[in-house]
Computed example of a mutant assay.
Amino acid sequence: MKRASLITLSILAALSAVHSAWAVDYPLPPANSRLIGQNQTYTVQESDRNLQAIARRFDTAAMLLIEANNTMAPVPRPGTVVTIPSQMLLPDAPREGIIVNLAELRLYYFPPGENQVQVYPIGIGLQGLETPEMTTRVGQKIPNPTWTPPAGIRARSAAKGIHLPAVVPAGPNNPLGRYALRLAYGNGEYLIHGTSAPDSVGLRVSSGCIRMNAPDIKALFSQVRSGTPVRVINEPVKYSVEPNGMRYVEVHRPLSQNPEQDTQNLSFTLSSDFTQFAQHADVRKEQLQKALTRRAGYPVAVSGENGAARATEPSLSMQSGQRGDAVSEGEVSGTVTQ
């Protein structure tokens, strides 16, 4: 799948109706830089079904839209101008293979031999069934997976009056979608896979696996080889000193252990390296504290005269394109049989 550059993406957006999902390649910045992309804005149309459909249109996560816009209704009113957080800092990890940052609900893929990074939205484990942090690799590629619901999921579903079959065959209604990448971690119970519930991507809803939109997992599956390194991290606060001396922080709401917790006010555990970054003479402490409190989910400059300003974001006024599929409720597991 050939993925359009951000510049091409913007041109196409201005000229025609958008598709149900946009995937974007970002050129890799120099080794001493982590800032990529730029934010956009979108005006909600009458035909926009819900927040997830808008997120899918830009291949981002619904939770990221909520962060970027501070407060957002599940079905935003037509005419509402929505910030699309398509600028970000690369995670603090080697630029190879797959990096999943749970806190920002994004997967980064660095194609070998190419000076680019692909960024995808993901769904992750809900509270009590969290996706674990890990350093591993792709152990197996599984096209057209079947799904064998584990005993725990079958029991929880039965308690809700839903009786799952012993095996769900491959096909469009399979909760694992059309493609799955088994991770060589634990007993192989964790997968990166598609889903039959597209509105669940960008949320904490799985039983620990990593969900992707159907076009995204298809694109990733076609490129990734068995043995590709995979790192799953939890990094709600990212920061960077750019080559021009500007300092940026990108702050996401931390993952809660309890659905009732207010993640907007949940405390962080900040590293000693971040403390050193924050204490630098160039950092405007008031702006940094504002960024840590606001938790906007996109890079904010905390040095220089424009320390409060976020990165530039072109305004795109577009008509709605195709709508996403309807939501189907239910949990999925990481157990697959062939």
Score class of each variant (00 low, 15 high):
residue 145 P to Q: 05
residue 141 K to Y: 07
residue 56 R to Q: 12
residue 187 N to G: 10
residue 81 V to D: 02
residue 24 V to L: 13
residue 55 A to Y: 08
residue 92 D to F: 06
residue 318 M to N: 08
residue 48 D to I: 02
residue 144 N to G: 02
residue 269 T to F: 03
residue 300 V to E: 10
residue 305 E to P: 06
residue 317 S to Y: 14
residue 196 S to I: 01
residue 189 E to H: 09
residue 76 P to S: 05
residue 171 G to K: 03
residue 132 P to H: 05
residue 206 S to Q: 12
residue 252 H to D: 09
residue 206 S to I: 11
residue 110 F to V: 02
residue 209 C to N: 11
residue 91 P to A: 06
residue 337 T to W: 04
residue 297 G to Q: 02
residue 310 R to Y: 12
residue 112 P to H: 12
residue 264 Q to N: 13
residue 2 K to F: 13
residue 109 Y to W: 13
residue 150 P to E: 07
residue 87 Q to K: 08
residue 322 Q to T: 07
residue 162 I to W: 10
residue 307 G to R: 06
residue 184 A to C: 12
residue 151 A to I: 12
residue 222 S to A: 15
residue 77 R to C: 00
residue 192 I to W: 04
residue 188 G to V: 02
residue 22 W to Q: 13
residue 39 N to H: 00
residue 30 P to E: 03
residue 16 S to G: 12
residue 71 T to M: 14
residue 187 N to I: 06
residue 147 W to D: 02
residue 16 S to Y: 11
residue 234 N to R: 13
residue 56 R to S: 15
residue 91 P to V: 01
residue 331 E to C: 07
residue 165 P to K: 04
residue 9 L to A: 15
residue 171 G to I: 02
residue 56 R to Y: 07
residue 119 V to N: 05
residue 326 A to Q: 15
residue 170 A to E: 07
residue 333 S to D: 03
residue 204 R to Q: 11
residue 131 T to V: 05
residue 201 V to C: 11
residue 94 P to V: 04
residue 151 A to F: 07
residue 315 S to M: 09
